[in-house]
Computed example of a mutant assay.
Amino acid sequence: MAAGLAILTELIIPQEGDNQDLTVLISLFVIIVGFMIVSGWSLGRPLYYIIGWIDRLANGTYADSDAEQKIYASKEKKLKRPYHLYKELIIQLHTLSDVLEKSKQDRIQLDEMKREWIAGISHDLKTPLTYIKGYSSMMLSPQYDWTTEEKTKFLMEIEQKADHMQDLIGDLNLSFRLDEQQTPLKWEQTDLIEFVRRIVADVTNDPRAAGYNLSLETTGSHIETMLDVKLLQRALHNLILNAILHNPPGTNVTIHILQDTHLHIVIADDGKGMSEEGVDRLFDKYYRGTSTDILSEGTGLGMAIARQLVLAHGGDINVTSRLNEGTSISVTLPLHN
Score class of each variant (00 low, 15 high):
Leu227Glu: 00
Leu311Tyr: 03
Asp64Arg: 00
Leu85Glu: 03
Lys102Asp: 08
Asp228Leu: 08
Arg45Glu: 01
Leu168Thr: 06
Val310Ala: 11
Asp167Glu: 09
Ser27Leu: 12
Asn242Glu: 02
Arg177Asn: 13
Tyr48Arg: 10
Ile169Val: 13
Arg115Phe: 10
Thr332Arg: 05
Leu216Tyr: 05
Asp64Gly: 01
Leu301Thr: 05
Asn318Gly: 13
Lys161Asn: 09
Ile12Trp: 12
Leu129Cys: 08
Phe283Asp: 04
Asn242Gly: 04
Pro184Asn: 10
Arg177Asp: 13
Lys153Gln: 01
Met303Pro: 04
Gln69Val: 07
Tyr83His: 01
Gly52Asp: 01
Leu125Arg: 02
Ala210Met: 04
Ser74Asn: 14
Lys114Ser: 14
Ser103Trp: 06
Leu8Cys: 08
Tyr72Phe: 14
Leu129Met: 12
Ser74Trp: 05
Met1Arg: 07
Leu22Val: 14
Ile118Gly: 07
Arg177Ile: 13
Lys104Phe: 04
Ala3Arg: 15
Thr61Ser: 08
Leu309Arg: 06
Ile257Met: 00
Leu172Gln: 06
Thr183Leu: 07
Ala312Leu: 04
Met226Val: 13
Leu231Gln: 04
Ile169Trp: 05
Ser215Leu: 13
Glu76Ile: 08
Pro82Ser: 08
Ser74Phe: 02
Met165Thr: 04
Glu325Thr: 15
His94Thr: 10
Arg81Thr: 12
Val266Ile: 13
Tyr287Trp: 14
Ser39Tyr: 10
Thr218Pro: 01
Glu112Arg: 15
